[in-house]
C-alpha cells in the first residue's frame, strides 16, 4: 500500500481506513526485578476526525500505547495500524502523516533560536525553503511565541518550550496528532491556549485526528469526542463522555469540602447507604492544602444526615457542600475501584 496521496477532504473521509486500529496489543517491558506488563490486550478503534482521549492513572500504559502507535516502540504481541499502515513494518508511511507532542519536557537544542529549530524541522519534513520559513512564522504566531521567535531555546520557560514543541508537532500538518499530556505543567491560561489551538487545528480540516492523554478529567471531558478509561494496561470502558457518565448508577452525588479529615474516608465509606466515598483528585478547592475534598455517592439524599453526624464525631467541619452531576472522575472511581486522588504513584 502506498501513502495516501491527497489530504482528507469531506468527501473522502468515508473512504479512509480507521485512523487507529489496535488489536490485542500487549507490551511487556523487561525490567529489573520482574517484567512489567504495561499493556495487556488492548483493542481500540478510532475513526478519522475523532478527538479521542485516554484517561488513566500513572502507570496505566497510556504513554506506552502512544509510543507503539508513533513507531517508537514495538508491541510484544498484537497488531496496530495507523490509517491502515502497520506500526511494525510501514514506519515511513506512518511517520509522514503523524506527529507527537509530549508534555512536561525539557527538549530542544539550547543554542538554537526558536525560529531556527523549527526551520530545521521544516526541512526534515521536506518543505521547500521559502515555504518552510512561512510555515515556521505561521506556527510561531499560532502558538503565541512571537516575542520569543529570536530567543535561544535554552532561555525559554517550561510553557514556552511546550508551545515550541506543539509548533514542531504541527509542522508536517499531520493527519493524526498524538498528544501525551500536552498541558502538563502549564498555567491555566497557557493550557487554555494549547487546548483552543489543538481543537481549532483539528476542526479546520475534516479528517484530522487526535489521540490525547491527560490526567485532567475536565480537559478530557471538555475536549474529547470519545474516550477510553485505562488501568493496568487494559481498557476498562469506552464511549462518549456523556455515555460514560450515564453509566454511573443513579443515586446522589455530593462533593464535600472539609477543614480536616483526620480519620480518613474509610469510616464514612463504611456507613450504610454510602456507596462510595473517595478523596477528590482535581482538588481545585484546596490549593493551600488547608481543606480536604471528598466525593460521595449515596443511595439517597437522606443518607447525608448520617454522614454529617459521623463527620461531627470525627471533629471534621464542613466548609462547603455541593450536590453534583456525575463526572468522569465518578466513572473512573466506579470502574477502577479507587479515586484518582488515592491512585498509587506509578513509576514513570
Amino acid at each position: 500500500m502506498s501513502a495516501p496521496a491527497a489530504p482528507a477532504t469531506p468527501s473522502s473521509i468515508d473512504d479512509l481506513p480507521p485512523a487507529i486500529e489496535v488489536r490485542g496489543v500487549r507490551r511487556v517491558y523487561k525490567a529489573k526485578p520482574n517484567p512489567v506488563t504495561a499493556l495487556d490486550g488492548v483493542d481500540l478503534d478510532v475513526a478519522p476526525g475523532e478527538l479521542f482521549g485516554l484517561l488513566g492513572p500513572n502507570g496505566a500504559g497510556k504513554t506506552t500505547l502512544i509510543k507503539i502507535l508513533t513507531t517508537l516502540l514495538l508491541p510484544t504481541d498484537g497488531t496496530a495500524r495507523v490509517f491502515g499502515f502497520d506500526v511494525a513494518r510501514q514506519t515511513t508511511e506512518i511517520r509522514r502523516i503523524m506527529n507527537i507532542v509530549s508534555g512536561g519536557e525539557q527538549s530542544g537544542y539550547g543554542l538554537l533560536q526558536v525560529r531556527e529549530q523549527l526551520w530545521m524541522f521544516s526541512q526534515f519534513y521536506g518543505i521547500p525553503v521559502r515555504e518552510g520559513w512561512r510555515r515556521v512564522d505561521e506556527l510561531i504566531d499560532a502558538v503565541g511565541l512571537q516575542e520569543q521567535r529570536h530567543q535561544k531555546i535554552s532561555s525559554l520557560s517550561t510553557g514556552q518550550r511546550q508551545k515550541l514543541n506543539l509548533a514542531r508537532g504541527l509542522m508536517n500538518d499531520p493527519w493524526i496528532l498524538f498528544l501525551d499530556e500536552p498541558t502538563l505543567g502549564l498555567d491555566v491560561s497557557a493550557a487554555r491556549v494549547v487546548r483552543d489551538l489543538v481543537r481549532g487545528w483539528q476542526a479546520a480540516v475534516p479528517g484530522r485526528t487526535i489521540l490525547l492523554t491527560s490526567h485532567y478529567m475536565a480537559e478530557v471531558d471538555e475536549l474529547c469526542d470519545r474516550l477510553a478509561i485505562v488501568d493496568h494496561g487494559r481498557i476498562l470502558a469506552l464511549g462518549t463522555p456523556t455515555e460514560l457518565k450515564q453509566r454511573v448508577s443513579a443515586g446522589s452525588i455530593f462533593r464535600l469540602v472539609l477543614d480536616a479529615l483526620e480519620g480518613g474516608v474509610e469510616p464514612i465509606a463504611a456507613l450504610p447507604g454510602v456507596e462510595r466515598a473517595v478523596l477528590a483528585a482535581d482538588d481545585a478547592t484546596a490549593p493551600d492544602g488547608q481543606t480536604v475534598a471528598v466525593n460521595l455517592q449515596l443511595t439517597d439524599d437522606a443518607v447525608l444526615g448520617s454522614v454529617i453526624t459521623a463527620l461531627a464525631a470525627q471533629d471534621a467541619h464542613i466548609v462547603a457542600l455541593q450536590k453534583s452531576e456525575p463526572t468522569l472522575e465518578d466513572v473512573f472511581v466506579e470502574l477502577v475501584g479507587r479515586g484518582f486522588g488515592d491512585a498509587p504513584e506509578g513509576d514513570r
Binding site: 526534515f124 521536506g126 510555515r135 487545528w201 480540516v205
Partner: peptide, 29 residues
C-alpha cells in the same frame, strides 16, 4: 489566531524515500 488550515505543508508527503530526499535530510542534519 491563524486557522492553520490544511494543504500548505503537504507537498512532499507522497514522495517515497528517494536519494534526493535522503540528501535533503542529510544536508539539514
Amino acid at each position: 489566531m491563524t486557522q492553520l488550515a490544511g494543504s500548505q505543508a503537504r507537498p512532499q508527503r507522497d514522495a517515497r524515500g528517494t536519494w534526493q530526499e535522503r540528501l535533503l535530510t542529510w544536508r539539514t542534519a
